[in-house]
């Protein structure tokens, strides 16, 4: 019998999160795929999920899923698992899904395989690929208890429609009112960026090697010239140099631009998992042995603060 695979599809007002479609695209290669969508708009998300490979979409429109963190969704999924018993449950690694996957696993007494970048379905089950040590090593991991719960890194797979259509089963699950505890009372959107980091063709990122926050103006200048966006490592976001919205990495954005320029970033795994699939990686770092140099197509051993002004001038000259 083909394995039963579920994808937990984050959605807002009927629009599935991009990662839900990425994961569905991969999942449909491996077996029968169903999706679970929760919250207002869940049913409306069904057709798009179907176009990407979901055969059945279990949809519950309850407002609790949107208003409260993690617990109502955990309840709903636990009920659905008890009814249908999927073999593999795939979650995109968004903040919301991370919360839900962890709670659900503890409730079911199973593990979570986090940071997955690939999944293979073999004759003896699923093998999940997890990068270690800045992605220099790949572990092939197997879940020993069912369901196997996996958190998939964003942009591990390219989303593409299969042309399928889903049967949308609208449910009204009986979620325990006791799960209404962590209440979202307000949503605040930050002012929009000039060029969105996620979709920029060029990302110019800085880390500790930029010395002080003020030196990020060099990155702003270069990014402006190239029509790109500025990114940052967790270290400098933590230090308060730049806002969290610029953070590239495990926590933060995953980017896949045509060109990624890493300035004064050593390349801890926290960072590299968020940028290693960039098409062209240029690193400028004083330390020739920094992990980022092993990822880079061009690694320049030198001081970013000295090279960036020259680079800005050279780009200006090249553009005439």
């Amino acid at each position: 019998m083909a394995a039963s695979i579920w994808v937990y599809a984050d959605q807002v007002d009927g629009r599935p999160a991009p990662i839900a479609l990425e994961v569905l695209t991969k999942a449909r290669e491996m077996g029968e795929v169903d999706a679970v969508a929760l919250g207002p708009g869940a049913a409306a998300a069904g057709p798009e999920l179907g176009r990407h490979g979901a055969a059945t979409v279990y949809a519950d429109e309850g407002s609790d899923y949107r208003e409260f963190l993690a617990e109502p969704a955990t309840e709903a999924l636990a009920q659905l698992v008890a009814l249908h018993g999927p073999d593999l449950m795939l979650f995109g690694a968004t903040n919301d899904s991370r919360d839900v996957a962890g709670r659900l696993a503890a409730r079911l007494g199973v593990g979570v395989i986090a940071n997955a970048v690939d999944i293979d379905a073999g004759p003896d089950g699923f093998q999940i690929t997890v990068p270690y040590f800045g992605g220099t090593q790949l572990a092939r991991v197997r879940g020993l208890k069912s369901p196997i719960i996996v958190l998939v890194r964003p942009k591990s797979f390219d989303a593409s429609p299969s042309g399928g259509s889903a049967s949308v089963k609208v449910m009204n699950l009986n979620v325990n009112p006791g799960s209404r505890r962590a209440r979202i009372t307000q949503r605040v959107e930050a002012a929009s960026e000039k060029v969105s980091l996620e979709s920029a063709r060029v990302v110019v990122s800085g880390g500790r090697g930029m010395g002080v926050a003020e030196n990020f103006t060099l990155l702003d200048q270069l990014a402006d010239q190239l029509g790109g966006a500025v990114g940052a490592s967790r270290a400098v976001v933590d230090a308060g140099w730049v806002p969290y919205s610029t953070q590239v990495g495990q926590t933060g954005q995953t980017v896949r631009p045509a060109v990624y320029i890493a300035c004064g970033i050593s390349g801890a795994m926290q960072h590299t998992v968020g940028m290693k699939h960039s098409k062209l990686i240029i690193a400028i770092n004083k330390d020739a042995d920094a992990p980022i140099m092993k990822l880079a197509d061009l690694g320049v051993v030198g001081d970013a603060l000295e090279i960036l002004p020259k680079l800005i001038a050279a780009v200006a000259a090249a553009r005439g």
Binding site: I261, I282, I284, L295, L298, G299, V301
Partner: peptide, 18 residues
Amino acid sequence: GEIMVENGTAADRIVALL
């Protein structure tokens, strides 16, 4: 990857790649 030690030509090399 290509590794180069900055010797005054890094900016030009990067522009060529861009």
